[in-house]
Design a protein around this nucleic acid. Structure first.
Lengths: 180, 180
DNA sequence: ATCCCCATGTAATTTGTTACATGATTGA
DNA sequence: TCAATCATGTAACAAATTACATGGGGAT
């Protein structure tokens, strides 16, 4: 499933502009699917060329016309077909974990800084989740709620794991060396 | 951090061929960093061209010469520099979660099949982890152990979450409809 | 017989990222 | 006055995937 299909899927929640979709990629989709304008706008053009969406241009003053896309019947069918894959992948690409693999080659302080940064990222994600929970999750389709919950579960597992195991990557206490 | 750097890092555990590295990408690195021959072989060529590794060709009968790569002093320095980034990313690209987002558009049986498939993938990962634990983890550097543990923690969190929440994506019981 | 393991690599294609290009409005 | 938000898009570039190309040895 590529950016095109995800954009099409997002449009099942109502018409939206490329700018709107970007915000969705940055918020509710942020923890499992990334896309920038450089992918989104071409994706929407492609969907339009293939009649999977229609486009309504809304003139605005001082800004480019706002282009609101709406999924078509063909679009719905295309999406359903794309969703038929019963073995969708789930890939992690982690420079963080790759770096940690080689922690023994690094100064232990540096390792701890990286861990702190990762914890901070997790905390900011959890903060966003809390906002969703207080505002709008209840109105989301069951699948979207499931996905947010999964993100929450993974984030919590990572947080706990890092806090409980970071000491294994700390420097050997100097006292030990002196004693040995 | 790209494939080149990860290959270089892998070579800190001892000399290896492209074929050997591929096996490592498929096993201990599988849960957070993917690479195929199409990335690995060009990466090793690049590392060799830049004197970050040396190469020893071992003639073999009936097979292409086995090329064993060894990290050089320059390679070590290059790696240390690459490891200096204190904000390494951790990205998930999940067609699985993207699909689940649109679960309400799909036949509920199909959703459950996808969930079963995901659970099977998690189980096979956990199986691999157990093998590592029984055989070799103890000899791994602390960082690599930390990373395997993280994979285990994430896998367990996902497994538990799916099992506890899959019912929210099931079809409404027909009895209810009849009663309503 | 057939399949998997060993072992290397290239070329075409797909995909996505980053930088560039433009510019008014609103709130601090 | 400064930053952020709104709003679109293209072009160059980077990176990885997939298919292609080859072929002996060993196990079932």
């Amino acid at each position: 499933m590529d950016v095109k299909t995800v954009c099409l899927g997002m449009l099942t929640n109502g018409p939206a502009s490329g700018y709107d979709l970007k915000k969705e990629f940055e918020s509710s989709f942020a923890h499992f699917f990334a896309a920038g304008y450089g992918s989104i706008y071409p994706a929407l053009s492609w969907l339009l060329d293939n009649d999977l969406v229609s486009c309504q241009e809304i003139p605005q003053e001082g800004k480019p016309d706002r282009k609101v896309y709406r999924i078509s019947e063909e679009g719905h069918q295309f999406l359903l077909k794309a969703l038929k894959n019963t073995e969708p992948c789930h890939k992690i690409r982690s420079e963080f974990l790759a770096t940690m693999c080689f922690a023994h080659l690094m100064p232990p302080e540096d390792v701890q800084v990286i861990l702190d940064h990762r914890l901070a990222e997790i905390a900011s994600f959890q903060c966003m989740v809390r906002e969703f929970e207080q505002e709008c999750v209840a109105e989301w389709p069951a699948g979207a709620q499931f996905v947010l919950g999964m993100g929450k579960a993974i984030a919590e597992a990572m947080e706990t794991y890092i806090k409980e195991n970071r000491h294994t990557l700390a420097a050997e206490p100097t006292a030990r060396k002196a004693a040995g």
